[in-house]
Design a protein around this nucleic acid. Sequence first.
DNA 1: ATGCCCATCGCATAAATATGCGTTTGAAGT
DNA 2: ACTTCAAACGCATATTTATGCGATGGGCAT
Lengths: 209, 209
Amino acid sequence: MIKVLLYDDSNQFREAIALLLDGSGDFEIVGSFNNCETATTDISMLHPDVILMDIDMPNTTGIEGVRMIRQKNDSIKIIMLTVFDNNKNIYDAIRFGANGYVLKKSAPAAIINAIKDVFEGGAPMNSSIATQVLQMFAGMSPATQNYGLSEKEKEVLQSLVDGNSYKMVAASLKISIDTVRTHIRNIYEKLQVNSKSAAVAKALKDRIL
Amino acid sequence: MIKVLLYDDSNQFREAIALLLDGSGDFEIVGSFNNCETATTDISMLHPDVILMDIDMPNTTGIEGVRMIRQKNDSIKIIMLTVFDNNKNIYDAIRFGANGYVLKKSAPAAIINAIKDVFEGGAPMNSSIATQVLQMFAGMSPATQNYGLSEKEKEVLQSLVDGNSYKMVAASLKISIDTVRTHIRNIYEKLQVNSKSAAVAKALKDRIL
DNA sequence: ATGCCCATCGCATAAATATGCGTTTGAAGT
DNA sequence: ACTTCAAACGCATATTTATGCGATGGGCAT
């Protein structure tokens, strides 16, 4: 029996889910609430295996709910429920550590499978959501072009990114400060910048490391 | 009929897939090669709808194959095939724009569904892979703590991240350079740094914007 | 109304950075 | 043998940053 805790502001939906899960026989609903303000205490009282969390709830949203829960507990599986699949919420929910993301309009069997899947360590997602997740990833990498930095130059640049001054770079790489200058000169030319902070920004944005 | 192009260095595997797809009746295999060096020309000759691409191929890997294809064509769907699911390859493949990621050990029906899914705009992934993708996302956000920057301070910091000098910040925000200094002083204190580049690095790493 | 914080500005100065013009050495390639 | 190039170093100097110690005015809250 998988112990399920449910948060959704619609009584109707909660009842429908309860009916569905009870009918299956593999689940035990240990709690069902219309808001997730008390999520952390609920969890310590009820010890659920899986939490179904609606995204759109008044006052405390499902996103905040996830954040609250994850500050205390990293192991409980959380599936987000939503009616919309075209939302920045997807990004936030995942960022805060949700384990799955299911549309409410999914077939009952799909919801049941999602709970079982997440319980076993999977990450159930509707097709449209999985697509968006991949696109977020793809959009993240700005065609990392190669600036042709030498090994040493990369080391120096990394040191700058770590917040070091010329002096500190020289010390940590055991070279003279004038050599550091030379390297940085060359880095600037290759990256087409003319200040330390611009170089650092470019290094981080374009992931040259 | 979904037109499928297949790259895999194992003849045995290619034959097995051919058999599987032919048997289904919904697919037409328009090409089948043991390397993806000529991928771009293959595509313009054969006009596939979906490409199945093995990750581990000699010489030109599947990752490079994806990169090559995506430079020319953004609409063809690409599914990566692999025996391992615990690999940095997942990240790279997705980054370069793969649409799905399927383990070779998956059930035949799962592979068929994956092709149909990706053809319809989905993003088929094995459960273990979906989990890893979500974890990459979750790991990306380092608990963005709030440094209590004021609105103006954020504007100034953003301008620094854009590579501007004090002078340029002053000009773009239409305030005096001394005011810029004051803001930056306060930013440094709040972020606990003492140089422009360190502030920029922290802003980007901790996503304070 | 009294304080507190934000945003604005000023001046001064030590430290760091950016950049120009050089040199030497050694490894890799032709 | 010759060229090319990364890597190391030096010196000089204009500019930029970092930071100390100020100030004024406007909201907002108690």
